[in-house]
Design a protein around this nucleic acid. Structure first.
Lengths: 351, 351
DNA sequence: AGAGAGTGGTGCATCGATTTACTGTTCAGC
DNA sequence: GCTGAACAGTAAATCGATGCACCACTCTCT
């Protein structure tokens, strides 16, 4: 009752007049070990009884699961939601499940999650927290967990078997900053949450390098505007962008262009611009990063940097699969994808 | 190796000088069956060896899993992302996992997912597709799956044990339409995707009832604007809103207020309004439904209907838990929550 | 003294599938 | 005619935890 009226391999075996081993052999791709007639009898029995193997029992025996873990900061952010969607698409095609975990970028929470996943038999995880250190994950990596770090480039001291998949954040931020400079902006500011995450550091670096390249006075370019270290959420990202922008624009000699760490933050920045009575894309230019769906939809549409999420998700899944099914973890490597600048209406020459 | 260096209950038992049964008794909340001294020895052994019970083995034996399923149309929609986030929060507090599935509202895909979840030992699922018929789910319900239908009210012919949790869509749409009428709008239109989903039907009904109540000519109120039946996605929702809005506003005698089926659609509608050179909240009023984070952030901020997602997620999880842990499914019931109107800048009296 | 209840445990079958080692048969090759 | 490989298939141990049925022992009560 609790278990439904599930059919076991024994019942199939009896119905087909063979032993469970034979059924198992058929199920596990060893049909050569029996006569075609036998094979057909077994197949018929499976069909007739509507047999579906018990995944739990299989997992207990083999130690393998048809599932991977996905740890994102928060799926409430459409960027991560979209990524999750694509990853699931890739996984589904190979009959894998995705276990979703929101870490809020807290290492301790992340560690607990990974441990639970491991206990559930999951041997492959996509980790999206972009934390600089992965020490909290090391024990599991050593135990054999395959980890793909997404949106995080390789760092010195990383575990050997780690695979990194990321867009080139430095290049992306450089591109978008160059775009602003090319439009003639000379007083810029960068709006970001805490720079603890490495992708944020990289974006900031790309921003600074573009400014330096243009021979601009660094002092003109407003430096990082971080909130307190523990605020990482995405509602926060937007609120932060809004609050900081109001401050910036109310200061003497305000910037004419604002670079936000990501699109959610940029949407907050746009709101902040309006709060001060200015027009985005006219009085002030704003750029984001990620190219979430809403970047195209909001008013004015956001100039931003596109991450090819679908391709990256497929890549991440393939890595996990080979890592899991190969048994031994594959050698660590990094995949750095060149992002694409998407120019829309939120940027224009300064007044 | 493949399985890590995992410690089993036997090793703990040996280390503590007791039988596995005793360890199991302690682990499963029966500490009264042993002397305090014994209990302490076992606890020490667990601690010392770093023992964590194998969830798979436990699941095979008991038939229970510490996981629930969540089937949403698409987590790329921030509304579902936020819901997933809250559900996970509730689940986590009770040490449950959430398995995420994107159904795209396709019944066949949904059925396949639920079957897979069942095979994985999952006995409780939150279903968010709002499909009018749950026939494709019936076999599993009968087998003992606990299902909470979210954002879908009870329908005639529903399985008996089904639990429905939803905001009152009729009331919500009524409220927001009343608001527009109260502002003086007399030519309205409703923008929606296919009305196959019951929540959409209800919202449309609420819209119509408010218009009828005001004694308005029904012909004035533009009827449903559906796309083809298979287009359900959320990128589509926005695109649909945009395309239909452009058509509507370019027609003779265009509406002065647009009611969108949800916020994503409303954001598309806003884009469409701008495409025709009009201003949202000045030339045309726009309202949505859901109150996603972006409703507050976009320009102008969206008047909409708020769903208390966090509370609803908690409620959904509690239902599943009692359903799963109680063994027998609880009696079917419905929870209908009164939504709240949130007035922002996208609505104003007609020109 | 013997029945009955309570205490503090343990032995072992069990969940369902997998897989290794093995058996019995057939038949080619010398 | 005998050897031994190839074939078709099976028996049984195993994965790790659970929980029922049971046991040995000590009190208490009549």
């Amino acid at each position: 009752m609790r278990n439904g009226s599930s059919v076991t391999i024994y019942q199939v075996a009896r119905a087909a007049g063979v032993s469970p081993s034979t059924v198992s052999n058929l199920l596990n791709g060893r049909p050569g070990r029996m006569l075609p007639a036998t094979k057909q009898r077994v197949e018929e029995a499976i069909e007739r009884l509507g047999y579906r193997p018990n995944r739990t029992a299989r997992q207990l025996r083999t130690g393998r699961t048809q599932a991977i873990g996905l740890v994102v900061p928060s799926v409430a952010n459409p960027f991560w939601g979209t990524f999750a969607r694509h990853l699931e698409g890739s996984a589904l095609a190979e009959d894998y499940h995705v276990l979703l975990c929101n870490s809020e970028r807290e290492p301790e929470r992340e560690r607990r999650y990974l441990e639970q996943l491991w206990d559930d038999g999951i041997r492959g995880v996509v980790l999206c927290s972009s934390l600089p250190s992965l020490d909290h994950v090391k024990p599991l990596l050593e135990a054999g967990l395959t980890v793909v770090a997404f949106d995080r480039t390789a760092q010195a001291g990383d575990p050997e078997t780690l695979v990194n998949i990321s867009v080139d954040n430095v290049v992306g931020a450089h591109l978008v900053t160059q775009h602003l400079l090319g439009l003639g902006h000379r007083r810029l500011a960068y709006v970001s949450g805490s720079l603890r995450a490495v992708n944020r550091q990289e974006r900031y670096r790309g921003y600074l390098s573009a400014i330096a390249e243009a021979g601009l006075d660094m002092a003109a370019a407003n430096a990082e505007l971080s909130t307190s270290d523990d605020r990482y959420g995405d509602r926060d990202a937007a609120e932060l962008g809004r609050a900081r922008t109001v401050e910036l624009l109310n200061s003497p000699n305000p910037p004419t262009a604002l670079v936000a760490m990501n699109d959610m933050c940029a949407l907050g920045v746009c709101a902040g611009v309006r709060d001060t009575g200015r027009q985005v894309g006219e009085d002030v230019s704003v750029v984001g990063f990620d190219d979430i769906l809403l970047a195209e939809l909001c008013a004015p549409a956001l100039t931003t940097v596109r991450q090819p999420l679908e391709r990256m998700a497929a890549e991440a899944f393939q890595h996990l699969r080979t890592g899991i099914e190969g048994g031994a973890p594959v050698a660590g490597r990094s995949l750095l994808i060149r992002p694409e600048l998407v120019v829309r209406a939120s940027t224009a020459p300064p007044r």
